[in-house]
Design a protein around this nucleic acid. Structure first.
Length: 103
DNA sequence: AGCTTGACTACCG
DNA sequence: CCGGTAGCCAAGC
């Protein structure tokens, strides 16, 4: 498991860190790409990329944009899932002030 | 090495 | 509220 050839952060580790942070979001709460990115130490776009590739194993639907809206390719599905989790969705927009995480 | 694309964010009018 | 612009950053070609 040791990999001395990998002296710098492996891309897989970053992905795992993102998945872990997303998985750490409690039910009924919502986080943003920027918030997750800050927790794992990467940019928001890196988070989006990680989820777009393998988000099927984590509650990706608990991650929305900084303004509380959902991303295009999953927007309808995300709003449905969030509403099913008990997240108050208002006109396609989540109130990050109320359910935003971390708080 | 350079160009393009993208599940982003912030600012401006 | 909405559209456009700028900045940022990493992956793919």
């Amino acid at each position: 498991m040791s990999d001395p050839s990998a002296g710098r952060t492996d891309p897989g580790d970053v992905d795992e860190a993102v998945y872990d942070a997303v998985d750490a979001v409690p039910p009924g709460r919502v986080s943003t790409y920027g918030a997750i990115g800050r927790l794992v130490g990467v940019g928001p776009r890196r988070v989006a990329r990680a989820l777009s590739r393998g988000g099927g194993a984590v509650p990706w639907y608990r991650v929305v944009r900084a303004d509380g809206t959902a991303a295009e390719p999953v927007r309808a599905r995300q709003l449905e899932l969030l509403a099913g989790e008990g997240v108050p969705v208002r006109n396609g927009r989540v109130d990050l002030r109320a359910v935003g995480w971390p708080d």
